[in-house]
Design a protein around this nucleic acid. Sequence first.
RNA 1: GGACGGUUAGCUCAGUUGGUUAGAGCUACUGGUCUACACCCAGUGGGUCGUAGGUUCGAGUCCUACACCGUCUACCA
Length: 876
Amino acid sequence: MEKSYRPEDIEKKWNKYWQEKRCFEAKNDGKPTFTVFMPPPNVTGILHMGHTLNNTIQDVLCRWARINGKDVLWIPGTDHAGIATQSKVEKVLKKEGLSRQKMGREAFLERVQAWRKEHGGIIFDQLKTLGVSCDWSHATYTLDPNYSRGVFTAFVRLYEQGYIYKGKRLVNWCPVSQTALSDEEVIMKPTQAFLYTFKYPIVEKPGTFLNIATTRPETIMGDVALAVHPEDPRYQALIGLHAQCPFDPKRTIPIIADAVVEREFGTGALKITPAHDPIDFAVGQRHHLPFIEVLDIRGVVNENGAPFEGMDRFEARKAVVEALREKGLLIEEKPYEHAVGYSERADVPIEPRLSEQWFVRYPKVEEAKRLAEKELIHFWPQRWIKTYLHWLNNIQDWCISRQLWWGHRIPVWYHKTDKNRVHVSIEGPNDPENWEQDPDVLDTWFSSWLWPLGTLNWLDKSEENQRHFNAFFPSHTLVSGPDILFFWITRMIISSLEFLEDRPMEQRLPFKNIYLTGIVRDALGRKMSKSLGNSPDPLDLIKNFGADGVRIGLLSIAPQGQDIRFDERFLTQGRNFCTKLWNACRFRQMQDATTSYHNLNDLLKALPQELNVYDKHLLLSLLKLMKEYEKLIAKYEFSSAIKLLQHTFKSLFCDDYLEIQKIQSSHCLAVQDLFLRQILIMLEPYAPYITEELWAQLHYSDGLIQEAGWDIATLEKFLTSRYDFKPEEFQAVETLRTLLEELRGLKAENGLASDKNVEMLVHLNPTHAKLFQQHQSDLEKLVGVKEIHCVTEIPADSPKVVTLWGTFAIVLEGKKQLDTEALKQDIVTLESYIKTAEQKLANPRFIDHAPASVVEGVKKQLQENQQKLEALKKYL
RNA sequence: GGACGGUUAGCUCAGUUGGUUAGAGCUACUGGUCUACACCCAGUGGGUCGUAGGUUCGAGUCCUACACCGUCUACCA
């Protein structure tokens, strides 16, 4: 075995092996299944910390399921990512002096394909490096022909049932990407702006005005009314009158009453621009007002906006304000911070714009709510259910058309001559020459919401595929960040409910659990982002710390659903732990490199008939650890589970058990093997490479570690039937471990930490005298003292510590003095403990109310402390 | 405006249904390297659990109010 642990070597080796032998492909052999759908990253994306975290978690789940004998199907894939990919390519084109409009649709799409070929799939290699165990034979891409067929089918079905419709609505328009966006793609940002107050002259009462407040003066030319609150006494007389448009002397607009107007805000009067504001749109519909658009698709003022035609929206804002000022209509402009919607991709303010778009009215909303309420779908952490239900309760129709070219083109054709005829189908009309296809594509999420269905070929009704589908659907857990709870997760639930209508409810949900990770932040608590440059490249981290080190480090700081403050220090800890594990296994092999087992039974056979107390203590602790670990993983407590493993391994096994073994004349390698074997198994989901390597090096089976199995009941039965585990023996070793700390501390406090020639005295408690004699020689070696002499009287002036077993003292040759200050401190502390305990016990209500075990505990504690105090007081 | 999450040691975080003296890792400090490991070992220090009240025999844990940080949500232009 190599002296030092070099992650890059073993990672490369096993990665190659796993891929070549296709170790992670689902068998569909009738065993219980375990399915996970990987959230598909963008096809041209590269691995970031968020991927690293949630894929490691998925891998832990999948590997653990495999160890438990499940037939695991973890489906990877990529998403064509409409806007993201298209805008990347357009940026490149711009540098070349080209544009998609100049190239034409077909040439442009070819160009995107080429880009995808060049940059696509990188993330798969990166995921492999990370060590994920997904089934690459099932890798899916949202533009695969089969997958696309599903997308079109979904569209057509929903259209036929009336869930999809085309409508002229106010949508979120991105003037840069020049496409509509869904509400979820709009980020609200607090923005510094101005609130302008200006006055509209009243036609019927010359010389009087109605003051209104707005942040968007550039839309004035699109105003079609002014609105006040119906019960506002200030404006009662004005309702029904008219106001004069400032930039069009021929146009007057009515003053209407509507309850949406907030009386307290601004002047209590609102200008109504239905074509450019969502509230105004609603008012416009209620009052049957005309819609006047004044901005075009680029956000530039159009002919309706004369005299500002041709100006960009922000330029126009300034010009309008100036013009109003000149006319003497501007009353006030004051700085004002408010929330403005920004396009997620282009990072510019979106423009509410009236346009014809395709919408989905969601089916199965009530069913989706019920699923969660009845806990057929379980959220981890549970609190997310509230957010989920809130969204479903306030659900809005989904704008699914995008004015892009990259994606699934909307399967709708319009007749060239008969404008009223519309054709909606997957294949298109039989006489295509007479039809024109809708130029738009579908929102990327309209394809990814079918992920669980599409990756399992839901449309393939062949017997073979149906068997496959039924075996692996629904999946066990969906792991994702909470940022796409609405974008993706909720919609997948709805789509599965809708399109699997012929199945019973429990078999229509795409996953039974939803685990939402936290967000990976930097050391300063900021979200990691490209623009800040604070996101480390996971591959660099893997290079520095090993994939296993990264995985352990990351998961150990990722408590359930809590945001993570990332710091490389934690990865150091992960890597160090791997080194420690490596060395412990190397130490095992140094003792005897010839042992090898075909399976667990072989190993159990190698255990001797009799074990010493330390062996028994270790094995009992192991059983306890296994049960605890199992429980934690089942509760998705990945951080606690790995920390428990690390701590037990280091402290119990390395620091205590192995050190004791070293001083024992005879010791049992099979016990070490059993412990190491189980530790490797439990660690495998977190650190697959190093455990695979050590498993092979130590010959713990003929196969891979993932085939090891996990039969805790059998193991427990075997051990408990073969060995007599006495609780008092276990307890003895526990107290011995405490005693070790106390005695080492005593030495260290007196500057003798490394002096092996120290002699000690002990005045034993009669209750522990026998125990002491049994362990005396071990104790001497482990503490590092020449000898411990039993005495009946401890000299008053020697440094001492009072323990459960008795009072121990150091024999000092020189003139070192007893530290009476420390002694006094101990006495003060003990006295305070005793006092609180006595107070409790003196309180009859405590005795009456508290459970017996608690009362007993306090009594015992009190007794022990009193004993210690007495012993200490003798020396003062 | 509403909802949710966070506030515990210098730092990052655990703390299960209220129950004995609040834990871990890292850092700091002291000492060590005796045939697994300096990516190591032994030890020490460090907390009035955000603030103020309340319930209880007993509160980090439950209740109320407030403060600060964060996230989501929302038609105050």
